[in-house]
């Protein structure tokens, strides 16, 4: 999901609404592309917390890619996201997802640790 412009008091409510139908779908990885998100306020953070919580409840993960400096600064101030879930670029995220997929493949081929 790509976020653009400002995630503030107003647009956070819109994001919550847009995510609603998504929660009915089966998936275990939610990626927020923040390349074009220039601003986030506490109401926007709240929406991201809710999304992370919902993903956690379904044993899934939430990742953030291409966070811009102004948004990263706010993330850092409030420790809004797990450091390990932030990726500087789509290429970095792809490399991570590839390694996850390799592990999953290994586990299905009999590694008891990943079964």
């Amino acid at each position: 999901m790509s976020l653009e412009g400002r995630l503030d008091n107003e647009s956070a409510a819109q994001l919550d609404q847009q995510l609603l139908p998504l929660w009915l779908e089966p998936f275990d990885l939610l990626v927020f592309n923040l390349a074009r998100l220039a601003y986030i306020s506490s109401m926007g953070l709240r929406s991201l917390f809710v999304a992370q919580k919902k993903m956690q409840e379904r044993q899934g993960r939430t990742l953030f890619v291409d966070t811009q400096p102004a948004v990263q600064k706010v993330f850092d101030i409030v420790a809004a996201v797990d450091v390990g879930s932030v990726f500087a670029s789509a290429a970095e995220l792809d490399a991570y997802l590839d390694s996850m997929q390799r592990r999953a493949t290994q586990s299905s081929s009999g590694d008891p640790e990943w079964a």
Binding site: S41, S42, L45, L48, F49, T62, V78, A79, D82
Partner: peptide
């Protein structure tokens, strides 16, 4: 101040606005 040590998925977002004000 809000509890920043809890993992993100256990946070509710309360107190963040004031914390941002104090920090910025």
């Amino acid at each position: 101040p809000p509890d920043l040590s809890a993992p993100p998925e256990e946070r509710c977002g309360g107190g963040l606005g004031v914390h941002l004000m104090r920090s910025l």
